[in-house]
Amino acid sequence: MGSAVLDIGGNTGALVVVTGPEWSGREIEISTKDQDPLARTRAAVRARHTGAGTRYTAVFPTLPAGPYVIWRTATEPAGTVVVAGASVTEIEWWQLP
């Protein structure tokens, strides 16, 4: 359980937000910096079992490259991240400003 299929290449990348186990089952929302902040994309945090142990992540498998706002609550941003095209960008929740 917990595998994900990513559709990246060209100007399309993916975002992985790493959290702690207390986030399991909760959703994380993002929006592009130039988009209406109410128009958001969300992904659920799931346990991802790897050879190195279990990681809790929200995976956004197909995103246009560019800057995104990660939302802590419905009205409070947690920070920003830039998604690169043709690659996977990973950020740890606890390192957001």
Rank of each mutant, 00 (worst) to 15 (best):
I91T: 04
G51F: 04
T57H: 09
E27H: 15
I8V: 11
H49F: 11
T62L: 09
W93H: 06
I8M: 05
A84E: 10
A52R: 14
R48S: 05
G66C: 04
T80W: 08
P21Y: 03
M1K: 14
I91Y: 10
E27A: 11
G9N: 09
A74L: 04
S24T: 08
L38S: 15
W94N: 15
G10T: 00
T62D: 04
T75A: 03
W71F: 10
H49S: 08
A65H: 05
T12G: 06
A86I: 07
H49E: 05
E29V: 13
A52N: 13
V88H: 00
E90W: 11
M1D: 12
A58F: 01
A44I: 09
G9T: 04
P77S: 02
V59M: 06
A39R: 15
P64H: 09
Y56W: 11
V5P: 09
V69S: 07
A74I: 05
D34F: 15
K33F: 06
W71N: 07
E27G: 13
T75F: 08
R40T: 12
G9E: 05
A74S: 11
E90L: 12
R48E: 01
L96R: 04
G66P: 09
Y56M: 02
E29A: 15
T89P: 15
T19F: 07
P67R: 01
G85Y: 05
M1L: 14
P67T: 04
I28A: 04
A74C: 08
T19G: 08
T12W: 07
G79V: 01
R40S: 11
Y56F: 09
R72N: 13
Y56S: 03
E92F: 14
M1E: 08
P61A: 03
P37W: 00
S24Q: 04
S3D: 05
S87N: 06
T73D: 12
D36T: 13
P77K: 02
K33W: 12
G85D: 00
G20E: 02
H49K: 12
V82T: 14
V45H: 07
V18P: 13
F60W: 06
V69D: 03
L6H: 10
T12N: 05
E90K: 15
A14P: 14
G13D: 05
W23P: 10
Y68G: 02
T62G: 11
A84L: 04
I8N: 06
R46C: 09
P77I: 02
V69F: 09
Q95N: 13
L63Q: 04
T57D: 03
G9I: 03
A86T: 09
V83F: 02
T57G: 05
V16G: 04
G9K: 10
S31M: 05
F60V: 01
S3V: 09
V59I: 10
G9M: 03
A84Y: 05
A84G: 12
W71R: 13
A4T: 11
D36Y: 07
D34S: 13
D7Y: 14
V83S: 06
L6D: 00
R46T: 08
W94Q: 09
I28N: 01
V59L: 02
W93I: 03
T54W: 00
G53K: 03
G10F: 08
A78V: 03
